[in-house]
Nucleic acid binder design. Structure first.
Length: 423
RNA sequence: GGAGAGGUGGGUGAGUGGCUGAAACCAACAGUUUGCUAAACUGUCGUACGGGUCAAACUGUACCGGGGGUUCGAAUCCCCCCCUCUCCGCCA
């Protein structure tokens, strides 16, 4: 949620920024919010005035009653009683305005950072960096969905039987490979100074709102109505919400957390030929890094987090590229996002394996996540997160890129974790 | 799932209709004292939304788990809900 004070003080700047997202009516949205807030303020001032009068009278009545002057108190009581309809009217009006204001504010996505290019879709993203040679595969090479059958390491049909499409069963070396990657990613994050947490994988509604999945992506999450709980689409949700309603001290910053969780996404209506195999799943594994920083540090930290993700890809010997997302392709909450894509040699495609974002104060505002600065002022922090990394597409690329007649080679860095160097 | 107890400021905890935004203590912060540390003493010490101001000072309203109600007036009385704890049951 954007700050009202920001929208008021830098209205034009906000509108210009939002235009980069290719929004239909950025100006209208901002104007509406400010209009509602103006009305809200006015209504509150009126209401507060009447309430102040009531409070004054009530005190007078109390005094009179104490000195047994009931006959003098009675006219005052009637006077106050007469104000009550007006109070009720104004209170209702205020509640409505506040709710309208909140809804309107929730509809406005984060303002992209200055360096974010305008654009409509993924076409307009900028390749900021590319690393590693594109592999050329021998004749007869297979896409990963064939390889997993050939080596019997991941079984989609079994998953369909017990759960449904998009819920694969990892078997044998396939299962071990998952575990190896998770541990490798966690260890690397620990080396980079991230403190590990293992959060719940279902969250309540307040958490969904805290990080902005609600109300924006309601339909994307699995929901358990009986208990009012959501299955997490990413560890970002529980980990960042750990710090909801928290005021940190400067000494505690930056907060660096890493966590492994399964992630669940309904992905309604997004299936097709391009999402075969491991390319898109309802349940997948991911290691997520989260940082909470002072505002002035967040963009340096964004770079640091990207560098961490890139180092993982390099250690896994996967060719990758780093994209600076354009306004139109960025997530709702983000001010700036870099995507990391690995090249999947048999599919001849780039696959997104990580998304690293700076949310600035957009999430912190909803989370009421603040810190006391040196001068004792409480102010909002910046939140950032990134996948480090999401497993399925990494597995797809590892399988495809490292295949040969002799089997699938495991990158040396993983061998201590898998216990085998070949599938 | 059944029974009971309870939810007050960073913490402990008083407060059963007006003098309570809330005692006291602890923690924290600033200062004084002190060779340093400690101790002692003094002061400060909630949040949100308004008004006001260059900025302050100052000032209004709301907030004692959440929502509703009674009343001139509610932390305090009534209703509903949520949560936590203890015991029992079930159980990885």
């Amino acid at each position: 949620m954007l700050l009202l004070s920001y929208l008021r003080e830098s209205r034009q700047q906000a509108i210009e920024g939002l235009r980069k997202r290719n929004l239909k009516d950025a100006e209208g949205m901002v104007s509406e919010v400010i209009r509602l807030d103006d009305e809200r303020k006015e209504t509150q001032t009126q209401l507060d005035k009447i309430k102040a009068d009531i409070n004054t009278r009530s005190r007078e009545i109390g005094e009179l009653m104490k000195s047994k002057q009931n006959d003098q108190a009675n006219p005052l009581r009637e006077e106050v009683a007469g104000w009550k309809t007006e109070v009720k009217t104004l209170e209702d009006k205020l509640a409505l305005l506040e709710s309208d204001l909140r809804i309107s504010l929730y509809k406005i996505p984060n303002v992209p950072a200055a360096s974010v290019p305008a654009g409509k879709s993924a076409e307009d993203n900028i390749v900021a960096y590319q690393h590693g040679a594109i592999p050329v595969l021998p004749e007869g090479s297979l896409p990963h969905w064939e390889l997993i059958k050939k080596y019997d390491i991941i079984d989609f049909d079994l998953g369909v039987k017990i759960s449904g499409a998009g819920f694969p069963v990892y078997k044998g070396k396939g299962a071990k490979l998952q575990r190896a990657l998770i541990n490798f990613f966690l260890d690397e994050a620990a080396k980079a100074g991230y403190a590990e947490v293992m959060p719940p994988i279902v969250v309540n509604e307040a958490s969904g709102y805290g990080t902005g999945q609600l109300p924006d992506k309601e339909g994307q999450m699995y929901f358990i109505p009986q208990d009012g709980l959501y299955l997490i689409p990413t560890a970002e949700v529980p980990i960042t919400n750990l710090y909801r309603d928290v005021i940190l001290t400067e000494a505690e910053l930056p907060v660096k957390n890493v966590g492994y969780t399964p992630c669940f996404r309904r992905e309604a209506g997004s299936w097709g030929a391009h999402v075969r195999g491991l390319n898109r799943l309802h349940q997948f594994d991911k290691v997520e890094i989260v940082q909470i920083t002072r505002p002035e540090d967040s963009y340096r930290v964004l770079d640091e987090m990207c560098a961490h993700v890139q180092s993982l890809l390099e250690k896994l010997e996967l060719p990758y590229r780093k994209l600076l997302l354009c306004g139109g392709d960025m997530g709702f909450n983000s001010a700036q996002t870099f995507d990391m894509e690995v090249f999947s040699a048999a599919q001849q495609r780039w696959l997104e394996v990580s998304s690293v974002s700076n949310f600035e104060t957009y999430q912190a505002n909803r989370l009421k996540l603040r810190y006391k600065s040196g001068e004792g002022k409480t102010q909002l922090l910046h939140t950032l997160n990134g996948s480090a990394l999401a497993l399925p597409r990494i597995v797809a690329a590892l399988l495809e890129n490292n295949q040969s007649a002799a089997g699938i080679r495991i990158p040396p860095v993983l061998v201590p974790y898998t216990g085998f160097d070949k599938i």
